[in-house]
Amino acid sequence: MRKTKYFLSTKKEKPNNTYSISHQLMIRSGMITQNSSGIYTWLPNGVKVLKKIIKIINQEMKKNNAIEINMPILQSSKLWEKSKRIKMYGKELFKIIDRNQNNLILSPTHEEIITQLVKNKINSYKSLPMILYQINTKFRDEIRPKSGVLRAREFIMKDAYSFHINKKSLENTYENIYQSYIKIFKKMNLKIKILQAENGIIGGNISHEFYINIKNSKKIKKNILKKKNTQIEIGHIFQLNQIYSKIFNAFIYTNQKKKKFLEMGCYGIGISRLIGAIIEKNYDQNGIIWPISIAPFQVSIIPINFLKDFLVKKITEKIYFKLKKYMTVFLYDTNEQPGIMFSEADLIGFPYRIIISHNTIKQKCIELQNRRTYSKKNIKIKNILKILLDKLKIKKKKYF
């Protein structure tokens, strides 16, 4: 992508009223912009990261034979009254009244509506087990939304729901998705901590939470800085058993013609929160350090005097068109000062940077830099594609 054709809204200064690193860097790097308290527009850089994370999640969910659906954000409050969760959620639940005086809610989760769906659509035990999932927007009326996407009022989630004829089947699926979550987070270079947790208002008796540990500095007496580990929850899975199936009378007849309430599981990943957590774990004083698998662009090309030096422009275009067949590339096709381009590239967090100048071209070379280590090396122009394919672990075929 060329900068002149791209909506890149970066900021040099720390935005006002931002207290977490991820909130600051997501705004400064042009990932999000704040509309009001806890509500954000996702800009192109943010959307690219979202899509890459969603792609990883989709791949793993498909391995579990999960079927993707899309459920409505608006739900009838009658479903929630039936489950009695309308009182449990309390003031965090967004409530709406339509023109016909019907009471609706903005969904924070979908256990009620998915159980009702399965009750009406599954007629045979032969259809089970079944896993249905969606990636959708959720809502929670946070009392004090802060820290950007880590605690927002509107957020993006992957929520999956499994249905079973018996508890053993539920336990097997639960274990499979447990392992899939480990794989999903590993693909993003995340070291996670898994804890057995309370099921809370979701229900059931077994659940596990998936956390990222980050380090904060906290001031204590005499201005001594003490490092404190902070955990950010990025995923939560539940064995719900028959709680919702009994409430909504969702049952099936077994092969022995016996009536059986469905066993149920629930599996969530907070995708927008996950992005904030990844940034809290991967940054330095200059900006974001993305894991390669989810960076908005894997490589940036910074040519010096692109619009003034014919040779630089010619070599830059040649490299750009060659690389973009296999990887995501961001080209600074402008005449900005090198320092400005370097600072912006560091802020956004491109994993690799190519610097093209008249002097290196004379030696038939370009400079390759690693964002995480700041290591730099002159590379022969003819070798740059092979070297980047190796570093990015891309097979020599079209990346997209």
Score class of each variant (00 low, 15 high):
314 K>R: 12
329 V>W: 08
306 F>N: 04
285 Q>W: 06
268 G>S: 10
310 F>A: 15
290 W>E: 07
316 T>K: 05
277 A>E: 00
324 K>G: 01
268 G>M: 04
328 T>N: 15
309 D>I: 08
293 S>H: 03
286 N>S: 12
326 Y>S: 09
280 E>Y: 01
311 L>E: 13
336 E>F: 11
305 N>G: 10
327 M>A: 02
322 K>Q: 14
335 N>W: 05
277 A>C: 11
329 V>H: 08
271 I>G: 01
307 L>W: 06
285 Q>M: 11
282 N>R: 06
269 I>T: 01
323 L>A: 06
333 D>R: 13
274 L>F: 00
279 I>A: 01
276 G>K: 02
288 I>G: 12
305 N>Y: 11
295 A>S: 15
286 N>M: 08
274 L>M: 00
336 E>V: 08
275 I>K: 10
323 L>F: 03
280 E>A: 07
337 Q>K: 15
327 M>R: 02
269 I>H: 00
280 E>P: 04
334 T>C: 09
319 I>F: 04
326 Y>N: 08
314 K>V: 07
310 F>H: 15
278 I>E: 03
305 N>P: 00
272 S>C: 00
269 I>L: 00
288 I>K: 07
314 K>C: 04
300 S>E: 11
275 I>S: 14
316 T>I: 08
308 K>I: 04
304 I>H: 06
330 F>T: 11
296 P>F: 10
280 E>Q: 01
302 I>S: 06
288 I>L: 11
327 M>F: 03
302 I>V: 15
297 F>K: 10
